[in-house]
Amino acid sequence: MNIFRLAGDMTHLFSVLVLLLKIHTIKSCAGISLKTQELYAIVFTTRYLDLFTTYISLYNTIMKLIFLGSSISIVWYMRHHKVVRRSYDKDQDTFRHYLLMLPCLLLALLINEKFTFLEVMWAFSLYLEAVAILPQLVLLQRTRNIDNLTGQYVLLLGAYRALYVLNWIYRYFTEENYVHWITWVSGIVQTLLYADFFYYYFQSWKNNVKLQLPA
């Protein structure tokens, strides 16, 4: 495992920890899109079906279980926890996320590495992950005051994606037969979606003002 991949996994892990910290200690999910969290829960459930069929490493298995468990528990907290659910910006979080799922499924049926159940689900999870951040970005744009933890959460997620792109470049040049077109294209699309957010985040950081996205 190279340094970019490890750093990518760690920023992903930190993003989840930041979100759990906000939910557990502040008992708030203000500014967090339940739609995006639901999509992530579906993404990890459909991608990690290979937990039952393929063993890669202990690291791989543990990380998969962490991402599965945390994404499902975050959705549960936002929907059912008696305190946390009250802070959810339901009226602002109106992105019709289920509309994203059908095109991703159709694309996965058409473009996959092999036409089997596991491979189609794997491709579906990659296409869905590429667009899963959209409801969160729309919610951020509507929120007047983005709190620090929410800003850091999205920043860490974006960093995780960017580090994975570096990891692919590194692996392409150092490993033989390392080619994953589906992962690369959907991963690059996903990273580009963060570009706008990155720009405004660093502007606000540089000028030392509160993060606000233009409407």
């Binding site: 991949r5 996994d9 992903h12 290979d50 393929t54 890669i56 490493s57 791989n60 990380m63 998969k64 991402f67 590495e113 092999k114 491979e119 794997w122 994975y164 990891n167 037969n177 390392y178 080619v179 994953h180 992962t183």
Partner: peptide, 10 residues
């Protein structure tokens, strides 16, 4: 038979 590459990333 066509072999798909191993998926060792998360």
């Amino acid at each position: 038979c066509f072999q798909v590459p191993q998926k060792d990333e998360l």
